[in-house]
Design a protein around this nucleic acid. Structure first.
Lengths: 230, 230
DNA sequence: CGATGTGAATCGATTCACAGCT
DNA sequence: AGCTGTGAATCGATTCACATCG
């Protein structure tokens, strides 16, 4: 069912970032091998990844930075506004809210949520932190598209359920926990509510542990190539 | 060269987390299908992933939680102390330093570094933030194993170079940037210094963009299975 | 000519089916 | 009888080679 490799999407995000950098440096043209070198992948890979979505270059010439950037923005769905809530406004949630770069590409923090009386009511980035009890109403009224989940691990599943019930279309889960569609009562079907929700994970503790493993087993790490681009 | 799939390592980290939870709930035995369900993968996958590293179960019986946990800890290299420095003590660096769970498994923050006069000298978690100029000496004297990179994107490459020159064995890069071994002067070799360093990335902006893409293209997302575990 | 775009081939990872213990 | 461990088979992703077009 996944005719386009998941890894390809991650790489597209990288290519887009590189194109932004090139544009900032007033570079107007590039090529698959140039992009490949900067992204640490092969030029074949770049061309194949782009080919999944269309033909963006000119044979013999390469790619126009502005055009390829525009097309990747479109492909990734970044030319539209995304309304976001953050659930969990501890240190991590606050760091996320304040991290620069989210507001490029129209990711807009519409609401911030927590349950702790110490945090609810605080002002963060022009927004007042609300209580989770208000989540469902807020999501509906503000047409919220996605929720960023930055609560402690033991609260993650419940908070995810709250987001799903509230009707978000996607969750970016920062907690080191596998978010599960509830499957109460035997080998039951996943509810439509959950089936429609996309979950992506960003797990820093896992990154730390992978790093430990690869330091001890460096030969198992497929080195990102930087020479011999093709 | 990578006889063990990279994805398998990520899954091992997940299995370990699940085993910790089971142990906390005083569950002493489990099985590949139980683990699979909790991890959102197939039972085949669990058995194959474990088989890369040894035989940890008992046929007809399943796995003993304590034993399998101990073995995964060993395989992942988490039964030893890892000395860590964090480079970049802005909001993200501070959130990382204070995030609970790193100190399980002997990840110890030995030093915190920044360049901003506003931050250097501050006390964070019993540690005084030091200036980057002291990094090299500090890493050598404190036998630092890995650096967490939490600086702004435009400083990431230089900070990574500083970490590599200082002699760390791995970098966990939080900046939305591809860290590159310097390749000055034509198609040159990568220096030994860099060749030996493992780099892992944790990119939250990329996660955000992947989420946007998969919300718009849900059919391209390989759904994590929760029913039909085998 | 030079670099893209793409079918064909290779390579790797996941799935399967079942042999092997307990 | 039940569940692990694993070679064989399938499936998917990456690499290649080259036809194509500016």
């Amino acid at each position: 069912m996944a005719e386009i490799p998941t890894a390809a999407i991650s790489r597209l995000v990288t290519y887009l970032r590189i194109l932004e950098q090139l544009e900032a440096q007033d570079v107007s043209r590039t090529s698959s091998s140039d992009l490949a070198e900067r992204a640490g992948v092969s030029a074949f890979q770049v061309r194949k990844d782009l080919a999944y979505f269309g033909r963006f270059g000119t044979r013999g010439m390469g790619y126009t930075v502005a055009i390829l950037k525009r097309e990747l923005v479109r492909v990734l769905g970044l030319n539209q506004t995304w309304n976001v809530v953050i659930v969990g406004m501890g240190r991590l949630g606050q760091a996320i809210a304040n991290y620069p770069g989210a507001s490029d590409y129209q990711f807009q923090y519409a609401g911030l949520f927590d349950v702790s009386p110490a945090i609810v009511g605080q002002q963060i980035r022009n927004l007042t932190v609300r209580h989770m009890d208000d989540l469902k109403t807020f999501v509906a009224q503000n047409k919220v598209d996605m929720g960023f989940l930055a609560v402690p691990p033991d609260r993650a599943q419940d908070a995810a359920q709250a987001l799903v019930s509230a009707g978000v279309r996607g969750i970016l889960n920062f907690a080191p926990v596998v978010i599960q569609p509830p499957t109460e009562g035997g080998a039951q079907e996943i509810s439509d509510e959950w089936r429609a929700v996309i979950i992506e994970n960003v797990d820093f503790l896992a990154g730390m542990k992978r790093l430990a493993f690869y330091i001890l087993n460096p030969h198992l790490k497929d080195a990102p190539l930087t020479e011999d681009t093709e």
